[in-house]
């Protein structure tokens, strides 16, 4: 059976992949494949998340005519995004689908929630099935996109509808144990960053270790929540084992924005890079019960940064202790 042998080869490759941890050759970096109908927002997502384009400007983005590859690389995140234009079938023989999907870590299918998505779902189920046959380890993710145009109830309903439609389609194609994750996204708020974070976390091999380390750090320094962020894309690579509140993640994103924006005005040196090894920011917020929020930030490379939030009433005592501790902790991560 050709299917079986495929899987075996896959296993072997995965094993090799784990061993060559340090001297990772260029082409083994996992890929994130973006697919979707025409005008569903694939390019806009890429531009907003990885190129810091403001959402309003994406209106002028032209439709993508060919396959676009991009490398995203920082200390923990290291992957390649491949975008297939909607009119192109990624499983065309000329495009070498076997090779593409062997390397594929996550397959994102973007659905325009404001449009009629029956065709899109049929196509998606077909693609998912084909990709699954090539590589069963792919994480399948569906972005129910452009959710900003829907009302609160409509969003949940749409997600539910998509979920069921996909399930039906996959059943018809005879594939049972294919796991699909659904995200409601919009480029006009933080949901796209959150969703992309979840996708990327699946590709980070050190995730459990990072989580443990962040937990230890929290306990040791009286921090209630900490994230490990990729500064340039606002993707969080890891967080501690406590659940993530969306509002706190949003706040962190905003803090990163403020820090970068101010740094780029006053701190960009000769090379125009606003971030260097001494970058840090402390932002204090007050609430009626004098809650404080700390983002003690120090970087282990130019891209990644830790951000921790401390909630306490004795803000002043802690301000002096968090930064050195976090710096020490981040040193630990970088090694």
């Amino acid at each position: 059976m050709s299917d079986n042998s495929d899987v075996e080869v896959e296993d072997e490759e995965e094993y090799k992949y784990g061993l060559q941890d340090d001297s990772e050759p260029q082409d083994t970096r996992p890929t994130v494949v973006l697919m979707g109908q025409k005008r569903s927002g694939k390019t806009s997502i890429r531009k907003v998340v990885f190129q810091k384009m403001s959402p309003n400007e994406t209106m002028f983005v032209e439709s993508t005519a060919r396959i676009t590859k991009d490398t995203v690389c920082s200390s923990f995140i290291n992957f390649e995004t491949i975008e297939f234009p909607g009119q192109m079938c990624p499983f065309d023989h000329t495009l070498d689908p076997v090779n593409t999907f062997k390397k594929c870590g996550a397959l994102l299918f973007i659905i325009d929630a404001q449009d009629d998505y029956t065709d899109a779902i049929r196509k998606m189920a077909d693609y998912f099935a084909k990709a699954y046959r090539i590589n069963s380890k792919i994480k399948f993710e569906v972005f129910v996109h452009k959710a900003d145009g829907l009302t609160e109830e409509n969003r949940v309903e749409t997600k539910f509808e998509v979920y069921h439609a996909v399930k039906e389609e996959l059943k018809e194609l005879g594939i049972k144990d294919l796991q699909v994750t659904y995200h409601l996204t919009s480029i006009y708020d933080h949901s796209i960053f959150e969703a992309f974070s979840k996708v990327v976390q699946n590709l980070v091999r050190q995730l459990p270790t990072l989580e443990r380390l962040l937990d230890i750090f929290n306990q040791g320094s009286n921090v209630t929540k900490s994230f490990l962020f990729d500064i340039s894309s606002k993707i969080y690579v890891a967080t501690d084992s406590l659940p993530v509140e969306m509002s706190i993640y949003e706040l962190c994103c905003d803090m990163i924005d403020v820090t970068l924006d101010i740094s780029s005005i006053y701190g960009s040196g000769e090379y125009g890079i606003p971030f260097d090894e001494h970058s840090a920011a402390v932002i204090k917020l007050k609430k009626t019960e004098s809650w404080s929020f700390y983002s003690a930030k120090s970087i282990d490379s130019w891209h990644s940064s830790r951000l921790c939030a401390v909630r306490t009433s004795k803000s002043r005592d802690i301000s002096n202790t968090t930064s050195p501790v976090s710096r020490r902790a981040s040193k630990k991560y970088s090694t």
Partner: peptide, 17 residues
């Protein structure tokens, strides 16, 4: 953006320059 939960009190942003 943080108005609904918190209010800004102070901020310190720096890098080496």
């Amino acid at each position: 953006s943080c108005r609904c939960h918190f209010e800004l009190e102070s901020m310190h942003v720096k890098n080496s320059s």
